[in-house]
């Protein structure tokens, strides 16, 4: 990151400041003093638990909380877990992918409007994007339960329009779960999109117009590519939490709409730790792999 990083013997405050934009570098010992408490916390309560989770996933599945668990390197836990719970896995990823795509489609125009068209309303609109979040996640999701309920107005309108059958319902269907996910994670899409759109130099778009591109072409060839970091960050921030979510599926769905989060939660609840851990590790590995491929594909490694 800096040129002085590899020269430990020079006390940085004595070194000539060549680059005015780079901050003064201080002694290495004080860096560790600042860093250590927080880093140790993360190692103790994030990394160590992850290692323990992998270990737990390999315990003898016949153990219990009372009798204790034996480490038997039971790789079969993974086979069993995927064998039993492949369906919620696939369903959870499908729901999350649909919700993420919907968030992008809904969120992009809003982020675009705030960044380019809002003028003096910009700050107000940003506050309005965040404001719903101060009402508790669960309370909001329960409100959706009411909105989509069988005698609610949404079902009424859908019936009038013939979108669902007369005895059809929205609650306890995949539709309701996806709707809940889309709603709950929308701001995670809008904010990064806004940030990257906001950074775009307007003169580039004007230049495209001067060079006879239509507004649509200008958008496709200039604005959209320049906003890709926001698209990548937004889709990740939406997809990752929704892939692990079980609140929406539990409150708005039924037993046929269970996502992988529901299974992990219920396996832990009944004390089936090895299976729950194997499922968690699989989810984590899949997500990390997808994120890595996706970031590579989108050419936005610098996000990390």
């Amino acid at each position: 990151m800096t040129s002085s990083a590899g020269a430990p013997s020079v006390a940085p405050e004595l070194a000539p400041d060549g680059d005015a934009s780079s901050p003064p570098r201080r002694r290495r010992s004080s860096a560790w003093f600042l860093l250590l408490p927080g880093a140790l916390w993360l190692v103790a309560f994030f990394l160590t638990p992850m290692v323990q989770l992998v270990a737990t996933s390999l315990y003898d599945p016949s153990g219990s909380e009372e009798t204790g668990y034996a480490m038997t390197w039971a790789w079969g836990n993974y086979v069993d877990a995927l064998d039993f719970y492949l369906e919620p896995f696939v369903r959870g990823f499908a729901y999350s992918a649909i919700a993420t795509a919907l968030c992008l489609v809904i969120g992009y125009p809003l982020a675009y409007a705030i960044a380019f068209k809002a003028g003096r309303w910009k700050n107000l609109m940003l506050v309005l994007v965040i404001a719903p979040f101060f009402t508790s996640f669960l309370v909001r999701t329960l409100a959706w339960k009411l909105i989509l309920s069988d005698n609610g107005f949404v079902v009424g309108i859908a019936k009038t329009l013939g979108l669902i059958a007369d005895d059809g319902r929205l609650l306890a269907t995949g539709f309701a779960v996806v709707a809940g996910l889309t709603y709950n994670f929308l701001p995670f899409m809008v904010l990064p999109l806004y940030v990257s759109l906001e950074k775009i130099d307007h003169r580039l778009i004007e230049a495209a117009g001067d060079l006879y591109s239509s507004p649509a072409q200008g958008f496709r060839k200039v604005t959209l590519p320049l906003s890709m970091p926001g698209v990548v960050a937004g889709t990740l921030l939406t997809f990752i939490p929704s892939a692990g979510d079980f609140i929406n599926a539990q409150l708005l769905g039924d037993t046929t709409t269970q996502m992988i989060g529901n299974v992990i939660e219920s396996r832990f609840e009944v004390g089936d730790y090895p299976a729950a851990a194997a499922l968690s590790v699989t989810l984590m590995v899949l997500i990390v792999a997808m994120v890595a491929i996706y970031i590579r594909r989108a050419g936005t490694e610098e996000l990390l």
């Binding site: 638990p49 323990q52 989770l53 737990t56 990752i240 892939a243 692990g244 989060g261 832990f268």
Partner: peptide
């Protein structure tokens, strides 16, 4: 931690506390 699903973080901490 920002890129991990909450359910994995919660589950792993529980696994640690129990162990």
């Amino acid at each position: 931690p920002m890129a991990s699903p909450e359910v994995v973080m919660g589950a792993s901490l529980l696994a640690l506390f129990v162990s």
